[in-house]
Amino acid sequence: MASSIRVRATSNGDITEVQALIQHPMDTGLVKDPKGELIPAHYIQQLKFECNGKDVFVADWGTAVSKDPYVKFSFKGAKKGDDLKISWTDNKGASDTTTAKIA
């Protein structure tokens, strides 16, 4: 299965800019389906970015993060060719991990 995570990490020397897009329904548990039944909550709770053995950025998310979430941040201390590991876990215990090379 294709990874649910799409990442672009680009370095301009000192600073690495990371953009990540994840495919996830991010259901709030408050919305009803066409039959009038509540769609149970299903959302990513934690998303981690790890580079060179260190968590550079950790996101804790609630249900108010949009469907197919997008996040962008920058960090220092990495160079081109380094691996950036991205992993998420959701409230149902599902998870996914991918590794991106910093370009």
Binding site: V56, V58, G62, S66, S74
Partner: peptide
């Protein structure tokens, strides 16, 4: 005004630029 006020919380490590962009529901 959301049913649950907190939308997202990010932990920023040393060396990470303090800033973030994302998309939220309102």
């Amino acid at each position: 005004e959301n049913p649950y006020a907190l939308a997202a919380s990010y932990k920023v490590a040393d060396g990470t630029v303090p800033g973030v962009a994302n998309r939220l529901k309102m």
